[in-house]
């Protein structure tokens, strides 16, 4: 290796050999490793550049005012309208509906795992929840379309594609996210505090709900935000189950379209690159990116505050 040749070929100092080759080799390694880490930064830069460049070209043709306040979204029709609100509405409806499942269910799952379950029960339940988290979203989409929608049909009259079935499966798929991140937050609450609460005569229920859960609250809230962010960015399940009808409605039994589903719709079609129709997906993706970024940053802030208290 380079180091060895330098050691034998270099000037022979009495005690310390000057290993220039070895030093250069070490430096080169350092730079290569730095470049590996820099790939992640380049990825972010690339994403932002692409979204902004194509997005700016889009906003050259369509005013941001029309885009963000318009209530009609028909960019692929002859009678074009570029109001993104129906897509945002559809996205938020699914995310909020999903949160009604994932937040309560994920929270009690986390509380059970952290405060009640024995180590053996934990050892069984955690991998099962990991499997739930690892099921591909296209499978959730299949299940929503072929099982959840017919099931909802027992009580109501949904259209074949409907927001409700998407809410259910997106809610379920984000349960593990809420439960595992909340579980981490609950676990991080020092045992000291539980002891203190028990020592004044609290029952386990009171220890959990009045001391541990409030103490972990910021971590728990961060898990809710991250789950919502995941739901907003979720693509395949909503594309398959919720349909492709941009529709500013609050009726979950109707077909809607989310931002992600629209992007899929355009890229599956034959819309030529460089047209305004194609650029809509960058404008929509930019909006989506900013929304999820804001949520993730808020979650990170909230978590950081939580750490300050206990570290």
């Amino acid at each position: 290796m380079a180091a060895e040749s330098a050691a034998t070929g270099g000037p022979q100092s009495a005690l310390f050999q000057r290993r220039r080759g070895r030093q250069l080799f070490e430096q080169a390694i350092g730079w290569v490793l730095f470049l590996c880490a820099a790939v992640t930064v380049l990825t972010t830069v690339g994403i932002v550049l692409i979204l902004v460049i194509e997005g700016l070209q889009f906003f050259g043709d369509v005013s941001p005012w029309e885009f963000f306040t318009g209530t009609k979204w028909t960019p692929l029709y002859t009678n074009q309208a570029f109001g993104v609100l129906p897509l945002i509405g559809g996205t938020l409806m699914v995310a909020i509906g999903a949160a009604f499942i994932s937040v309560p269910v994920g929270s009690v799952t986390a509380i059970y795992l952290s405060e009640f379950a024995s180590p053996n029960v934990r050892a069984v339940l955690k991998p099962i929840l990991e499997i739930l988290a690892g099921i591909p979203t296209v499978v959730y989409g299949y299940f929503a379309l072929t099982a959840v929608t017919p099931f909802i049909g027992n009580f109501a009259e949904p259209t074949i594609f409907n927001a409700a079935s998407a809410m259910v499966v997106v809610g379920i798929m984000t349960i593990p996210m809420v439960s595992s991140l909340s579980d981490d937050a609950l676990h991080a609450v020092p045992q000291d505090l539980r002891d203190a609460a028990y020592a004044v005569g609290s029952t386990r229920f009171e220890v959990t709900t009045r001391v541990v859960y409030p103490a972990a609250l910021s971590g728990v809230i961060a898990s809710y935000i991250l789950a919502a962010s995941r739901a907003v960015g979720e693509t395949m399940a909503v594309t398959i189950a919720a349909g492709s009808t941009p529709n500013l409605t609050w009726n979950p039994l109707e077909s809607i379209q989310t931002m992600t589903a629209f992007i899929v719709q355009v890229s599956l079609g034959d819309t030529p690159h460089g047209t305004i129709e194609f650029r809509t997906i960058f404008a929509v993706a930019l909006t989506l990116f900013v929304m999820t970024l804001v949520m993730n940053v808020i979650a990170a802030r909230v978590t950081a505050r939580f750490r300050e208290v206990y570290d």
Partner: peptide
């Protein structure tokens, strides 16, 4: 046991006030 702990209070090694 909760009833016992009401009658027998405890102070711990490290001060452990609640974050309240």
């Amino acid at each position: 046991p909760s009833d016992v702990r009401r009658v027998v209070g405890m102070v711990f090694q490290r001060p452990n006030p609640f974050p309240k």
